[in-house]
């Protein structure tokens, strides 16, 4: 087993009393790519912080590759689950891009050429290979964010979790993140991403989990999640389906969560 996530009846209550997770069930197979969407405060970040043990269940179980996270240290789980945080400035400390990325692999016990190889590979994947020797603070916010993602990728964990990877990214940045997800999946790794960008979600992930008030309210492929029957549920969590899905439903073309799907459906309709 490599990269399997099992979450059962997970409940998390913060010390001040907020019930952030209220019985979440989620199974992700090895090599799957899943998007987690929902309003701020719906429990997305709380959920992913359970995967590497940063938070412990108030009730319920989280297992990674069959292993209960309850008795496992974060430092050990970090070798299985790489979690990239939303704000890069809450983790960057090194004076060189290369050193920043090497931090994770070194913590996992890699040394020498193995570290260099992991660092170079990760920097190439996020498109920062040419600034390896630059000070991270000479890069703009969006590139610092890609750097933070690279520092997780370099750890080569079987599971990669990205918290809002496209926020603040421009057209090329979003395309880059899309490419990263695809290449991780091609590599057989499990990817989980939190996002507010529904078009990015529909085009990049074959499975979408919608959360509301600490529960999973939808868990299906984009065609179903963004299809007309799901709209009331989506609306209850203030999410709007991508334009392609709305146009497809309006024209009676069925589920067309992506532009490509809509174009195909229109072409098919006109042919018949």
């Amino acid at each position: 087993m490599d990269g399997v996530i099992e979450v059962e009846r997970l409940v998390h209550v913060y010390p001040e009393g907020t019930r952030a997770l209220d019985g979440v069930d989620l199974r992700v197979a090895a090599g799957e790519a899943v998007a987690v969407v929902g309003q701020n405060g719906s429990g997305k970040s709380t959920l992913v912080r359970h995967l590497n043990g940063l938070l412990r269940p108030t009730d319920g179980v989280v297992r990674i590759d069959g292993r209960d996270t309850a008795g496992t240290k974060v430092a050990c789980l970090a070798a299985l689950v790489g979690l990239a945080f939303q704000d890069p400035d809450k983790q960057i400390f090194a004076g060189r891009v290369r050193a920043e990325v090497a931090f994770g692999p070194r913590n996992l016990g890699l040394r020498g050429p193995a570290v260099d190889e992991a660092v170079t590979g990760a920097l190439r994947l996020v498109g920062l290979a040419d600034v390896a020797d630059v000070n991270p603070y000479d890069l703009g916010q969006s590139r610092r964010k890609l750097l933070a993602i690279a520092s997780i990728l370099a750890m080569r964990t079987p599971i990669v979790v990205l918290d809002e990877p496209t926020t603040g990214q421009d057209l090329r940045g979003v395309a880059r993140v899309q490419e990263i997800v695809r290449s991780l999946v091609a590599d057989g790794r499990t990817v989980l991403a939190i996002s507010h960008d529904m078009r990015f979600v529909a085009e990049t992930f074959p499975r979408v989990v919608v959360m509301r008030a600490g529960r999973v309210v939808l868990d299906a492929p984009p065609a179903e999640v963004f299809g007309a029957p799901s709209w009331p549920t989506l609306a209850s969590t203030y999410l709007e389906p991508p334009l392609a899905a709305r146009v497809g439903a309006h024209l009676g073309l069925g589920a067309t969560p992506t532009e490509a799907a809509l174009v195909d459906a229109v072409a098919a309709r006109l042919r018949s």
């Binding site: 090329r172 078009r199 334009l243 809509l262 229109v266």
Partner: peptide, 30 residues
């Protein structure tokens, strides 16, 4: 796009349709 700016969804859709020689959104009744 060449300047690194994402066009709005309606523009992207219109272009994808046009690229395949299909009618635009308005003609489709949207």
């Amino acid at each position: 796009a060449g300047w690194g700016v994402e066009p709005p969804s309606r523009v992207r859709l219109a272009r994808s349709l046009a690229a395949r020689g299909l009618p635009g959104l308005a003609e489709l009744g949207w």
